[in-house]
Design a binder for these strands. Structure first.
Lengths: 343, 343
DNA sequence: TCTGCATGTTATAACGATTTAGCGAATTGG
DNA sequence: CCAATTCGCTAAATCGTTATAACATGCAGA
């Protein structure tokens, strides 16, 4: 009946391997995991048996025993990430892709969790050991869910609770680099385009802008932009600015969409970039690079940041104690044609 | 010792729920899964117990019993997806994001698998029930791995083996739409920029271009572009084309990078788009939209395609028999300023 | 020689869910 | 009124792995 020539392909288990190798199941397990010493000669027999039978471990069974899923999740709380379309998605996906590579290098998979209405329900059917959160809001529903489940997390950007480990992105330095560069290339009157929301990064951007401009004796002008339809809002704002004759000779845009809007406005009024007006923005994504002229911006080193976040999370899962901030590598100014002619 | 006030938070199991609700574990299981009839009143007691105890099912245990991981993977075989940087990543990620949403709607998670050297080893530690492959090559290593493991897959784009289910993207129609549009807007001499590789989609693009141009009595000129550094290669090719005085009045670019290169070349020689030369490209990604003027391109409906692929895969996992092609929704021509003034 | 210790192995007990067989009670049908 | 069926449930078996305790064996030091 169930002879070895049985055609119904029952799954090959660790017991089958053990039988063929002439050892017990426990020894096979130890040989595979390396958790205990196994005689070299025995190990070799086991390896042969595994290859011969084409044994593939049942990961659910392993997971049940070890309590680990070998999987981490990446969440974007940005409720608009999908709705907002390709642009914001790009930012997030750049992080996700790098995190996926890092995770896989450590034999862990990365599961992509899009923004959803009811986290606790939907996520109860997906297994993961921990999560990376990208710029969660203060009342982030995912964080609650993680706490309830007792799962560790690493946050990229300022976290609601600084006790959890998080990757500190130096928003102060980011703003400073941009503003100082404007001053360096000779701009003397440049408004700041910044999101209306009181997200920490926005607040710091405002503060730093004010501080540096004041220190340099330059006028200060903060233009708040609604984050939905930011591009058009920014275009309108800059058109107004020009038409009011404020004599601006620069624009600092905190997100690339507003930078694009500003560029449109400048083109519409026949102002030349960088001769008449210089423009900088924060995120050196595709958008910044494909403006004409391309925009001076910051290489935020998202790939490295994602790598750090994923590695930290995996370290925690392996038992390492970790809390508080981990510094992200400093952003790098990428000077392009929007502030320096011919770059 | 282990009284109910024990602080060590042992995991809440189905047995605990059963005890509190005054039923057996099996009944709790049935109530949750809905696989068997459970008295309404009993079900309610169970629901209360679940809420009270904060029960979360152990997915590894469930998976072990049911043999399902509730997870699907998405692979990019494009070996260069990460190396090639943001552009190609965008294409892939657009698909991944949409697939993630679809999967989650069906209570399945999507795991992101970046290109890796040794699939069989690295993937042996990550659990998934099936996979979506994006434009796999003929000798794709992932496909072998999936076959070995006996896991179902759905391929987006022409598959190495047509027996597996796959989403048919009508490359013929894609090329036709672009070429016909050029003819319609009055272009009479437009070379085709196409990748040198013999990927099926490239081959079809060539054939269709030749067929439609010949039918319209127009000259045919195929320029093959090396896929690494496509942008610069395309720019050089178009510069050469212009300088040789071939009198081109249009360019059909099969990928957006080559379209960008062409645009640079046209700018460099002072040719106006769309007045002197009209340009179309295939993928309406961010790149096409942010050229100046923006490029007429195709909405390939990647989100819908991803949705179809994910849903088909999940259908197969639920036992539905499925093989051969599933038609993707037809691409939509998006007319922009690069072929029609003022769009 | 005996104790102690490291080494490599085995048998067995979990892990926490689903599934199976089966059992009374209630309902139906002839 | 008895047999047959349905209903709602329980007890027990099961999935494949890893962890635990125990056990020989060999070797060192006293």
């Amino acid at each position: 009946m169930s002879s070895s020539s049985d055609l119904s392909r029952r799954r090959v288990t660790v017991k089958d391997v053990a039988r063929v190798a002439g050892v017990s199941a426990g020894t096979v397990s130890n040989a595979i995991s390396g958790k205990r010493r196994v005689d070299a000669e025995t190990r070799e027999r086991i390896d042969r048996a595994i290859a011969e039978l084409g044994y593939v471990p049942n990961l659910a069974a392993r997971g049940m025993r070890t309590g680990r899923a070998n999987t981490i999740a990446i969440f974007s709380s940005m409720p608009t990430a999908v709705a907002a379309g390709k642009a914001k998605l790009g930012f997030l996906m750049e992080i996700a892709a790098a995190a996926a590579v890092t995770a896989l290098e450590r034999n862990v998979a990365l599961v992509l969790v899009p923004p959803i209405k009811d986290p606790s329900t939907a996520l109860s059917t997906i297994p993961f050991d921990g999560a990376v959160l990208v710029e969660p809001a203060a009342d982030d529903p995912y964080l609650d869910m993680l706490r309830n489940r007792g799962l560790p997390s690493v946050v990229i950007g300022p976290p609601p609770d600084e006790k959890d480990p998080w990757v500190r992105v130096d928003n102060h330095q980011i703003a400073e680099l941009l503003v100082d560069h404007m001053i360096e290339v000779g701009a003397t009157n440049f408004p700041l385009l910044v999101g209306r929301s009181m997200r920490r990064s926005n607040v710091i951007f405002r503060e730093t802008y004010v501080a540096r401009c004041s220190a340099a004796g330059l006028p200060v002008r903060i233009i708040e932009i609604d984050e939905t339809d930011a591009e058009n809002a920014a275009e309108a704002a800059i058109l107004r600015e020009i038409d009011e004759g404020n004599g601006l000779d620069g624009v600092v845009a905190s997100i690339d969409a507003t930078a694009s809007g500003a560029m449109s406005a400048l083109r519409a009024r026949g102002l030349s970039v960088p001769d008449d007006v210089k423009v900088v923005t924060r995120y050196d994504g595709f958008r910044a690079r494909s403006e004409n002229p391309s925009l001076t911006a910051l290489n935020l080193r998202l790939d490295e940041i994602a790598q750090i976040a994923a590695n930290s999370l995996l370290d925690v899962l392996e038992g390492k104690e970790l809390s508080g901030p981990i510094d992200a590598p400093p952003p790098l100014l990428v000077v392009r044609g929007s502030t320096v002619k011919g770059m």
